[in-house]
Write a protein that binds this DNA or RNA. Structure first.
Lengths: 119, 119
DNA sequence: CGCTTGTATTCCTCTGAAGGAATATATAGG
DNA sequence: CCTATATATTCCTTCAGAGGAATACAAGCG
């Protein structure tokens, strides 16, 4: 279950965003590698990763005593979709103006729907 | 100036997300309308709107003593773009598997991956 | 002018959550 | 076993920031 609230809350923290970006660069990282790359202490990294994992933003693969973390598309996509639902806001040409101008049966690009099929 | 950190920090708060969604439903709302619709107290609404505005997520139009708030595409789009930069994560089909199978039935579009070809 | 309405701001309190240190747990190796 | 390494967890402290109440500011109205 991908809960948008959990996800956006988790992303709303700078160090967690840093971890996400580090995980994006390297396809997969252990906790130690993230500690090294982030400059954070090991416990903070583990704790942040726990939050990210419970939000479906990262997943773990156990390997001996190492844990390999990688990004989880489910949470990332859910967040992306949440913002995508606002797409009409920045794609909105002036609809009121359209009506005032009273032009048109030929408007092919009318942003009434959330997404265009050929996106 | 659209600062991603400001934006994602601002969105990382449930009541601010509520305000964004309310503003999305009605194209434009006054503070009073948002107070009424959200159930929050007027000062909290004003304060949250201030945070949202400083993150380019909403904009204001003054009209007498009323302030009409509406969504600002700049901030919303910047957040959308930030998550879009992770698109390869959830669109990544198993490239290594592709090579192993060596029988692509229909090669539509292959996402670029940062890995070396002779992996 | 007061008076009222709409909004912003200030002050205060208090909770939640981030950070640090120490410790617990697990696993590999001698 | 004992030790070292990798990670997780617990406990504690601290602090940013969310919420509430009161107030300030601004603008319409009688």
């Amino acid at each position: 279950m991908v809960e948008t609230d959990l996800i956006l809350d988790a992303v709303g923290e700078p160090n967690r965003r840093l971890l996400l970006e580090l995980l994006h660069q390297h396809r997969e990282s252990t906790v130690s590698e993230l500690v090294d790359a982030s400059g954070l202490n090991q416990p903070q990294v583990s704790k942040h990763l726990k939050v990210l994992a419970s939000a479906s933003l990262v997943s773990v693969r156990a390997d001996g005593r190492k844990r390999h973390y990688q990004l989880d598309g489910r949470g990332l996509r859910a967040a992306h979709d949440w913002f995508a639902s606002f797409e009409d806001v920045w794609q909105a040409r002036f609809d009121a103006l359209d009506e005032l101008v009273s032009t048109p049966p030929e408007s092919e690009d009318h942003p009434k729907h959330p997404r265009s099929p050929d996106d």
